[in-house]
């Protein structure tokens, strides 16, 4: 095949240059903006990572408060992601496959936690968990307390992380052709067997990515947690406390450790989710 420009040979030199100009402009814009955005993200992060001196950093690493707060951050958000996996997957499947009246409403309801100011999330959860509310009364009769407990932190993280999980998994399940499920049914597999033999094997990567998103959202949460549980302290709350009490110099090393730990953890999970192995 000849290229289109060959078919119109007249005025090739200048016309081509002119034609190329918007292309150059476009690519310039593309790469300059991308570079700026990367700089904007990595600049402050690099500053944070490289500014603490090694002594302060080592000292922080030995600080049991720091380590336990980081562990608490990771374990509570991991727990929230696991709960999202168990409870959010069915909802995502229903939204991906079923058409029903009010589906739009349900979908925007799920997105709501993304938009609500974080302290409000904490306040809402606390007010529900209070003694005066029937749900709170029921929970306290079971011995479950949200105020100032790990349970409370997990509840908050589940609330703010669920939209990310459900939306990711919904998109993943929509990408599985309904015909595959129909064929599976025709071959004798019931709806449950079809779900576990066809839908999940074809969308498990999205489940994993959804959990990563949910967990990432949980690790970064501050505003809602600080209202529900100042203690036990998660890493962001500890950072805030160190910042207000001792200043930037002592809050930064905590941030560095949290950033490094989360980065390795997420790189690892992303790695699993993108393996092009036998199951793809």
């Amino acid at each position: 095949m000849e290229s289109p420009s060959r078919e119109h040979p007249h005025g090739r030199g200048t016309l081509d240059a002119l034609r190329r100009f918007p292309g150059l402009f476009f690519h310039g814009w593309l790469f300059c903006s991308a570079g700026l955005v990367l700089l904007f993200i990595f600049g402050p992060l690099a500053k944070t990572i490289f500014s603490p001196t090694w002594e302060v950093f080592a000292e922080t690493l030995r600080d049991p408060d720091v380590l336990s707060s980081i562990w608490l951050s990771i374990s509570t958000s991991g727990m929230a992601a696991l709960i999202a996996l168990v409870l959010g997957t069915p909802l995502a499947y229903i939204l991906a496959r079923k058409q029903f009246r009010g589906k739009r409403l349900v979908e925007s309801l799920i997105d709501l936690p993304i938009m609500i100011p974080h302290p409000v999330v904490g306040i809402v959860l606390l007010s529900i968990a209070g003694r005066n509310h029937p749900i709170g009364a029921f929970l306290s009769s079971l011995g479950i307390k949200l105020m100032g407990t790990t349970t409370g932190i997990v509840a908050v993280l589940l609330f703010v992380g669920m939209p990310f999980y459900v939306n990711t998994v919904k998109a993943g399940m929509e990408s599985v052709s309904p015909r595959l499920e129909k064929v599976s049914r025709s071959l004798g597999a019931g709806p449950g067997a079809t779900f576990f033999r066809v839908t999940i094997p074809l969308s498990w990567r999205y489940l994993l990515v959804g959990m990563i998103m949910c967990m990432a959202r949980g690790i970064s949460e501050f505003g809602a947690i600080v209202i529900v549980a100042y203690h036990p302290m998660v890493a962001p709350v500890l950072m805030y406390e160190r910042f207000t009490a001792y200043g930037l110099k002592y809050s930064q090393p905590v941030a560095v450790i949290l950033i490094l730990v989360s980065m390795f953890f997420f790189l690892f999970l992303r790695g699993i989710s993108q393996v092009r192995g036998k199951t793809s």
């Binding site: 025709s186 071959l187 074809l202």
Partner: peptide, 18 residues
């Protein structure tokens, strides 16, 4: 459908890719 003892073949094959 799973109780009908049918075979279903679609135009786009619909094979299980995994």
């Amino acid at each position: 459908p799973e109780k009908r003892n049918i075979g279903l073949v679609y135009q786009d094959h619909a094979l299980f890719p995994h």
